[in-house]
Design a protein around this nucleic acid. Structure first.
Lengths: 227, 227
DNA sequence: CACGGAAATAATTTCGAAAACCTGTCCACC
DNA sequence: GGTGGACAGGTTTTCGAAATTATTTCCGTG
């Protein structure tokens, strides 16, 4: 995700806690708005007080948890208003990044996109054939594909922002359980986006991408699990 | 800045440290790339180990400091490449937010812009008349003016991103000492932007805003204090 | 019965020191 | 002369407990 973390030698407890917390928040194991009591978390993740607090402070800085002075932390609440705002903003920023990528992307970029799509689709087929569940790996490949599309925009900062928005919307998707839809249609949508990108058809690619996000958003909204 | 901090009762030591650190990094008292040794900082800010670490972790999540596992923190380095990227990205995002604000802003928004400009220009005149230095207050009013322009974009997320970029570029401006230029021209530029905005002339407002940022960037680049 | 305030409880925040880690130095050895 | 491995000093990271702050409970009063 965003932030700056050069993973050098051994990983630090704070970073482990950060990753686990992020996974559990994005994965929906920790409900939106729920209180994050330090003592409970130390037992849950088997890490001490200090590393946990450091992890929570990092998360509070990129909006995954809220912090109230002297009252601790809670998972950021989820609302349909925020989801709308999230999708709207994501469409804006990714349109920007995608147009810029298409405009200045080179052959290496094209190959990155192609490869990322290939890996994702291969994983998809495995699901179809073997009826195994979507797991973390699929999400990683999915994220990698979407970021590859934008990766030639020549602004790491913008990419980080898009990455943050991806993570936030992923949380909403996981809150509603929309796995069924994804198995059915998402692969086709991704392929269409890839094709438009490879054709350097910016208008079409942007339109497909925006539709991709809008549809996803509406399904989540329609699931009725948000206030 | 970004992040989520409901300031409720008494302020926490970690938040105080966060604010002071941010001020010193943005203000240039802490040199880009310099190592942030815990012991030195505890003496400098008169706070203990833990609150300091929490502050640093927050700052690492929004890019003001870098973190290397088991090797501590350092102020994010500053380079002309990053400044270019910063300005480029800022132009993109603020164009977006400004166009959206002009499109959907209501009367209340117009009044916010007008008021913010008034306060800023009043402060400017005080400087001219009394030869006192730019201080923190001016920066606050300046930030408030720029954010007011974008404040009707209907996306708090986008506003937070713009706010982050503002802070980052402010650091670069403070690294080079470009006070002279600002006293001379910036007020006129701000007035022109305000007028274009009040006329709802999006193209003109965007062009002025982008020029405003580009010129500022070039002055900083020309100051030759970056690698 | 509602209201307000003091004590008790529970949570967060902070401190001081121990543990783990990185870095450079010195010396034996090839 | 160069290499590598143990050692020493300094730094970061983590722990356990103390200090501080919020929350609940309980009781007397209006």
């Amino acid at each position: 995700m965003a932030g700056t973390a050069s993973s050098n030698g051994r990983e630090t407890l704070a970073s482990i806690a950060y990753q686990k917390l992020l996974d559990d928040i994005v994965g929906g194991q920790l409900q939106p708005g729920s209180k994050l009591r330090l003592h409970a978390l130390t037992e849950r993740y088997k890490v001490g007080n200090s590393p946990l607090r450091e992890a929570l402070n990092r998360l509070s800085a990129n909006g995954m948890v809220q912090r109230e002075e002297n009252r601790g932390f809670r998972v950021s609440p989820a609302s349909s208003e925020e989801l709308s705002e999230l999708i709207r903003t994501r469409c804006w920023l990714e349109e920007l990044a995608l147009r810029e990528s298409i405009r200045r992307g080179d052959v290496v970029w094209e190959e990155r996109v192609l490869l990322a799509f290939h890996r994702l689709s291969r994983k998809n087929r495995l699901f179809d054939e073997q009826f195994i569940q979507f797991d973390g790996t699929w999400e990683d490949l999915h994220r990698a594909f979407h970021l590859s599309l934008l990766s030639a925009c020549n602004s790491k900062i913008l990419l980080d922002f898009c990455s943050q928005l991806h993570e936030q919307t992923l949380r909403y998707r996981n809150l509603s359980s929309m796995k069924a839809y994804r198995e059915r249609h998402e692969l086709d949508e991704h392929r269409a986006i890839r094709d438009a990108v490879m054709d350097r058809d910016a208008d079409k690619a942007v339109e497909l991408l925006r539709a991709h996000y809008r549809v996803t958003g509406e399904i989540v909204l329609a699931s009725g699990k948000l206030t």
